[in-house]
């Protein structure tokens, strides 16, 4: 990442920065359950939440700490399969606890694959995270134990019960997912606003300089890997339990890893908000494209053409964002807001 100016945390009480997230959260908790259809919940909001959380995790590692990872989907898979096995094999383990333990498991795996980052930089590290991608997928497919001896490694979500309340309905799964995402995002937000976040940015911008001024580079990198993997692991568990309900290792392939990387590029590197904006874009964009394509071109626009044009447009967008707006949609929104404020004044 090129040297960027660091906006120091606002010393005043961050009322303004909290206003919009608070409003969004209120709408998400009150308006959405009241009005959203099952389609909206299951096809848009549930994948949006899980992908947002995964992107928050990756953004911590890549956006803040500057360590490019191409193995996010593998860590999502670790989280999903860990949560499944914990739930299956330890009877009476409360669901939230099995999610936390799944996150811890993923953090352990992520730290192991992050160890090379202590010696490797840049591309070499990116390639080493690919090792995680292929290795994890192979392990989950090859060893039946992880999927309770399902021949193709498929796992199905357990019933979602917390403290006697069932969260199995679409709305229930949505609320469960929303609460998990909110709590973890708050945690990450506190982390990046604090000294750990500034250490990460220092390591990203110039590792040698950071070391010289006394930033504990080793600890910062490992912390980024551990927390990031924890979050991505929980996101994987949400993806499997609340959105798809039935997953196989092949669902967590390299394309999924790229998808999460694209979310943070489009949404905005090194912003918490960017992960959500990018995820919303990635989830809604194919649906919009399918509708528009069918409307404009009719039958010619079949699923094959749709798939290819989706790839092309996504690729073009990635390059355009990198060239024109490296800080993504998040910064674009900021700029529009300042402009409209100025006009009002």
């Amino acid at each position: 990442m090129a040297a960027q100016t660091i906006s120091l945390p606002d010393s005043r009480f961050p009322l303004r920065t909290l206003l919009w997230p608070a409003l969004a959260l209120a709408a998400a908790y009150i308006l959405v359950p009241a009005f959203a259809t099952t389609y909206l919940l299951e096809a848009i909001l549930l994948p949006f939440l899980a992908l947002s959380l995964a992107a928050v995790g990756l953004n911590l590692l890549t956006g803040y700490c500057g360590q490019l990872s191409l193995g996010s989907a593998a860590f999502m898979a670790v989280g999903a399969y860990a949560a499944y096995n914990l739930n299956l094999r330890i009877s009476g383990l409360p669901l939230p606890l099995s999610l936390v333990l799944a996150g811890v498991t993923t953090a352990a795996v992520g730290t192991v694959f992050g160890l090379p980052s202590l010696r490797l930089r840049g591309f070499y590290l990116a390639v080493s995270t690919l090792a995680a991608q292929f290795f994890v997928q192979w392990v989950l497919t090859k060893f039946g134990w992880f999927s309770n001896n399902n021949p193709s490694g498929v796992i199905s979500a357990p019933r979602l019960i917390v403290a006697g309340f069932s969260f199995d309905s679409a709305t229930g799964r949505y609320l469960f997912s929303l609460t998990t995402v909110t709590l973890l995002t708050l945690f990450v937000w506190r982390l990046v606003e604090g000294s750990a976040g500034r250490n990460m940015i220092a390591v990203r911008d110039n590792e040698t300089a950071a070391r010289v001024i006394g930033v504990p580079v080793l600890r910062t990198k490992l912390l980024a890997f551990a927390v990031s993997s924890f979050i991505i692991g929980v996101a994987g568990a949400l993806w499997a339990f609340t959105y798809l309900r039935t997953v196989e290792p092949a669902g967590f392939n390299l394309d999924r890893s790229f998808q999460i990387l694209f979310i943070i590029i489009i949404g905005g590197l090194a912003t918490v908000r960017g992960a959500f904006i990018g995820a919303a874009f990635i989830v809604v964009f194919p649906l919009v494209l399918a509708r528009t394509g069918a409307f404009l071109f009719g039958g010619v626009f079949d699923s094959g053409v749709l798939d290819m044009s989706q790839r092309i447009i996504l690729g073009v967008l990635i390059i355009l964002f990198l060239i024109l707006e490296p800080k993504g949609l998040s910064e674009l929104i900021n700029r529009l807001a300042t402009r409209s404020n100025r006009q009002r004044a």
């Binding site: 490019l68 840049g122 790229f258 092309i312 996504l314 690729g315 073009v316």
Partner: peptide, 21 residues
Amino acid sequence: PMTLFMATLGLSYIIEGAAQL
């Protein structure tokens, strides 16, 4: 270099999509 790498990732999506389209 990371930005450039990510750009080539986008490029690979464009070329793959275009080739098959």
